[in-house]
């Protein structure tokens, strides 16, 4: 049985179609759902095993990237989301989705109370950038989505992806507890993120967010050097990890 994945849409999210396709290729049964419909009926979450927050510019990022989605989720979905994760549900947020999870406080959520510890702010360059960067996944981390994945080039497409923590102590704790899931590698860092952090998870390892776009690397032909030999695999294996974890948890 393919685990059902809800992929949120609406309000300015715009990378929902490819996120659904990546989950489908990984063996899930994706369904796109307008966030307004989920906010109006949080019980819809009960039937799914994976909840995915896509990239985009929700509410224009006018008050801060992901800010209003985070507000809406805190006000309407928090109990349902907490139950969903406690019951073994998987959550992924990519780019704007990651920003929303961080602003909600469900990432990294070391205190279990959605306390805010980290942020994703304007790139050091001050510019939006669309380019492929080398990303390495943490071998020893807790993240269910990135276990055993090889490093590769992945597309980065954001203006606000610079990972910063409240203070050095919070950053050290996030590292020490194995919550860093992905980093920019080979000395590259597209946005000035602290310790080149590209993605983190919560203590359960099931809630995960990252700035690069594995769902924009669906087939080898998406690779910008597609006609040269390469060892970069499409991003589907990351979603396969998530789908496997969703299956294992039921």
């Amino acid at each position: 049985m393919e685990p059902k994945a809800l992929v949120l849409a609406g309000y300015g999210f715009n990378a929902d179609a490819e996120l659904a396709e990546a989950l489908r290729l990984a063996g899930a049964a994706p369904e796109r759902l307008h966030l307004a419909d989920l906010a109006a009926d949080p019980s819809l979450l009960g039937k799914a095993r994976i909840l995915a927050f896509p990239g985009g510019f929700s509410f224009g990022d006018h008050l801060g990237s992901g800010q209003v989605v985070a507000l809406l989720c805190r006000r309407t979905l928090r109990p349902a989301l907490e139950r969903f994760v406690a019951d073994g549900g998987l959550v992924i947020g990519v780019c704007n989705g990651f920003q929303a999870l961080v602003r909600m406080g469900i990432l990294p959520n070391r205190d279990g109370r959605w306390g805010r510890e980290v942020s994703l702010i304007q790139n050091e360059s001050g510019r939006f950038v669309d380019a492929w960067y080398p990303v390495a996944f943490e071998g020893k981390g807790r993240c269910a989505w990135t276990k055993g994945l090889s490093g590769r080039l992945l597309p980065v497409r954001h203006g606000e992806g610079r990972f910063v923590a409240r203070d050095a102590a919070a950053l050290d704790a996030i590292e020490a507890e194995g919550l860093v899931a992905a980093r920019y590698s080979s000395g590259e860092n597209p946005n000035g993120s602290e310790r080149a952090i590209a993605g983190i998870c919560d203590p359960s390892g099931r809630v995960f967010g990252l700035m690069p776009h594995p769902e924009a690397f669906l087939v080898r032909e998406n690779h910008p050097s597609r006609r040269h030999p390469s060892r970069d695999d499409p991003g589907i294996d990351l979603f396969e990890n998530g789908v496997r974890a969703a299956r294992d948890a039921t």
């Binding site: 715009n14 179609a17 924009a216 910008p224 597609r226 006609r227």
Partner: peptide
């Protein structure tokens, strides 16, 4: 050009910049 998102929707095959160094 890199400030334009040319890859959202994941439909892009030949991109504005190509080759080994992209």
């Amino acid at each position: 050009v890199r400030q334009y998102d040319h890859e959202v929707k994941s439909i892009s095959i030949e991109k504005p910049f190509t080759g080994l160094g992209r």
